[in-house]
Design a protein around this nucleic acid. Sequence first.
DNA 1: AATCGTTCCTGATAGC
DNA 2: TGCTATCAGGAACGAT
Length: 266
Amino acid sequence: MPELPEVETIKKYLERKIVKQKIQDIKIFDRKGFKGEKNKVIGTKILKIKRKGKFLIFILNNSYNLLFHLKMTGQILFFNFLRNSEINKATKVIFVLNNGYLIFNDVRRFGWVKVVAEKNLKEEIKNLGIDALNLTFDDLKEILSKTKRPIKLVLMDQRRIAGIGNIYANEALFLAKINPLKPANSLKNEEIKELLEAIKIVLKKAINYGGSSISSYVKPDKRKGKYQEKFLVYRREGEKCKNCKTVIEKIKLGGRSTFYCKNCQK
DNA sequence: AATCGTTCCTGATAGC
DNA sequence: TGCTATCAGGAACGAT
């Protein structure tokens, strides 16, 4: 699933390829995936690419933005030339640029791209919490003190902290040796500090590895990320903990699969 | 106000 | 082999 590291990887790739390029045309294959007027975008130049949490934002030169959310299976691909074989039933939108083709695919059709006037962008993402990479100790302490919900649910709550999804919540909690069920407001200062460090280490390392290619995530050139090879607990139920050899458990929490080591994460 | 359960969607997989 | 049932999951939404 595209979480912060995957969206950041896509952002970095696209910065090298499509900034300063002109959008010549937009071909829409799935109306559900394209919100707003495409005429506001055709003929504009892409000035800048930003990321907030799991959102990807193209800043255009006419005070409009393109706001993407990839949800679970969204893919953004970029090719200088378009092969017919690249168009399939998951293809939602193709942006025709002067130097190539930006393809937005999404098998499960939850993802979307929206044309937003720059002045309305804040309103669009007003519910988004602090980006996980900018989180400070004081921020995290404040957020956790306000609820007794299980810590994992709070880490994944985009209104509190933006960018962490199921993979990296599981991985960060393991690294910090904290049980995912532990009430958020019961964490001691030392644990909060460990958790903050773990979040940053896991996210930055995942970015360095180009994200995690499970499900359908790939980089815009279709190459896979490599962080899935580094997972310590995610999808490792029944396998041995890399610290202590205890068998990794899988439970459901808030309807999501949760993986942890009973021995290491008290 | 905060939190919980449901819903959207389709491909992969399990079970018979 | 081929069918059906279940599962995966981000986040908006309505209900509590």
